[in-house]
């Protein structure tokens, strides 16, 4: 019996894929394993299959088989649209971050952070199903719940997002390795920060199209997946942990 893995890709696009590859192999295949010469970072989650009837599990079993030359089936797309909202949270196992050169880091579930001494504002990158860059006064757990609550005009059936390192706008020289976050119109950034911290807005969209420049360098505390039924959280390892335990990934992600 062939081992079939189910993966939900969240970034850059949503899809649900059956594969014979283990997560690190799948990440490498998706990022760099094509002859097209692509180099694409991605975020995906492993999923325990066989639930509900939204996806064709029989089709997956019949077609996720080795090729004629005995090489494993790399990917069989089961769905490419509105995937996140159709996967129960309890079926999501681990989250994987794959760098554009094909190295994959596994994140396991962790308790949702809630800070007793909150910061005046947080920066969030929505990863699925939409991709804006948002400034909010909500803490990470509150932000997700706000976005799926359904009691505002801007609402989603489910959301995957991460919080980002907050830029010190007062010290635009010594920034640390924040890559693409740098020099993103500091004036507009300051205005958006004021909207939240001074004028009391709960959320303010900073940029509609930042996702194309998103990198793992700027991820703060971690990643969240939230729907109206609940939420799950994945801690982003600290720099020191990356240095000692996941050096290759940290080096590829330009964090080290």
């Amino acid at each position: 019996m062939n081992q079939i893995y189910y993966y939900m890709t969240l970034f850059p696009t949503e899809s649900f894929i059956a594969s014979m590859l283990q997560p690190d192999q799948f990440g490498a295949y998706m990022a760099v394993g094509h002859k097209t010469g692509g180099h694409e970072q991605m975020i995906f989650a492993s999923v325990e299959g066989g639930f509900g009837d939204d996806f064709d599990w029989e089709y997956a079993k019949q077609n996720t088989v080795p090729h004629d030359d005995d090489t494993p089936k790399n990917s069989l797309y089961l769905s490419t649209y509105r995937v996140l909202e159709r996967i129960p949270l309890e079926r999501i196992k681990n989250l994987y971050l794959t760098t554009s050169d094909g190295r994959t880091l596994e994140l396991t579930k962790a308790p949702f952070p809630h800070y007793d001494d909150p910061k005046p504002y947080y920066l969030y990158q929505d990863l699925a199903p939409i991709n804006p860059l948002v400034i909010s006064s909500f803490q990470p757990d509150e932000y997700g719940q706000y976005m799926v609550a359904g009691d505002t005009k801007i609402t989603l059936p489910a959301i995957c997002y991460c919080d980002l390192k907050v830029i010190d706008a007062d010290n635009p020289t010594k920034t640390g390795n924040i890559g693409p976050m740098y020099n993103r119109n500091i004036g507009h950034l300051n205005e958006c920060i004021k909207s939240v911290t001074v004028r009391g807005k709960k959320t303010k969209m900073l940029e509609r199209t930042f996702a194309g420049r998103f990198t793992f360098q700027i991820v703060g505390a971690g990643f969240a997946i939230v729907n109206p039924e609940g939420h799950i959280w994945f801690d982003m390892p600290k720099r020191e942990d990356l240095l000692h335990e996941h050096y290759d990934w940290g080096y590829s992600a330009m964090i080290l």
């Binding site: 020289t173 010594k174 920034t175 640390g176 390795n177 924040i178 890559g179 693409p180 976050m181 740098y182 020099n183 990198t215 360098q217 330009m254």
Partner: peptide
């Protein structure tokens, strides 16, 4: 720049 100035690694300046 790689030491973390002007956006550091991955930035346009880099």
């Amino acid at each position: 720049i790689e030491d973390g100035y002007y956006g550091g690694k991955g930035s346009d300046a880099h």
